[in-house]
Amino acid sequence: MASSSSIKIDGLLSMVTIRLSDNNFLKWSFQLQFVLQGYELFGYFDGSIVQPPKFAILDEEGVTSQVTAGYKEWLKTNKALLSLLIATLSDEALEYVIGIKTAQEAWLNLVDRYASVSRARINHLKTELQTAQKGGDSIERFLLRLKHVRD
């Protein structure tokens, strides 16, 4: 697992060229996932990188008030990734993550919101593909238009 100290979050931001809006969730999530997976950071979003215990446990004392180094590092990286995620959102999408405390919560909120929109959009796009006509377009332009609908 990469730590936030070894990864510059602003460097990751430059790799995510798409800002999430109402009509591009699939492209945005595809790009964000691959950037984060490349640096072994997507686990903060999907929950596979689990939050470590916040407080140290000592055999003789039980739970102490001492915050663990692992938790501090996890929190630092999580907040940096949440900031990265927020920086890739449009104003409309930002409304769905206001008040969220972890990258995973933000990710799940966005998936819940936009995946349902995407299903409705898929039905619309299927109809658009089925009724597409070449018209006066060249073959290249027509195929490019179909590719855009498919994407």
Rank of each mutant, 00 (worst) to 15 (best):
A2W: 08
S3I: 09
S5C: 14
I7G: 08
K8Q: 15
I9C: 12
D10N: 14
S14I: 15
V16C: 04
R19W: 02
L20Q: 01
D22Y: 05
D22H: 10
N23W: 05
W28F: 07
L36F: 06
L41S: 00
Y44K: 04
Y44A: 07
F45E: 10
I49A: 08
I49P: 00
V50G: 11
P52G: 12
K54F: 04
A56Y: 00
I57S: 11
D59W: 05
E61V: 15
E61Y: 11
T64H: 04
V67I: 13
T68E: 02
A69R: 10
Y71G: 04
T77D: 03
T77H: 00
S83L: 02
L84W: 01
I86Y: 05
Y96C: 11
I98V: 14
I100K: 04
I100H: 00
K101W: 02
T102S: 13
T102H: 04
A103Q: 03
E105P: 00
W107A: 07
W107Y: 15
W107I: 01
N109E: 06
L110N: 03
V111T: 07
Y114E: 07
A115S: 08
V117W: 05
R119N: 08
H124D: 11
H124Y: 10
K126H: 14
L129R: 06
L129F: 01
T131Y: 03
Q133E: 14
Q133I: 13
K134H: 05
K147L: 15
K147V: 13
D151Y: 10
D151N: 13
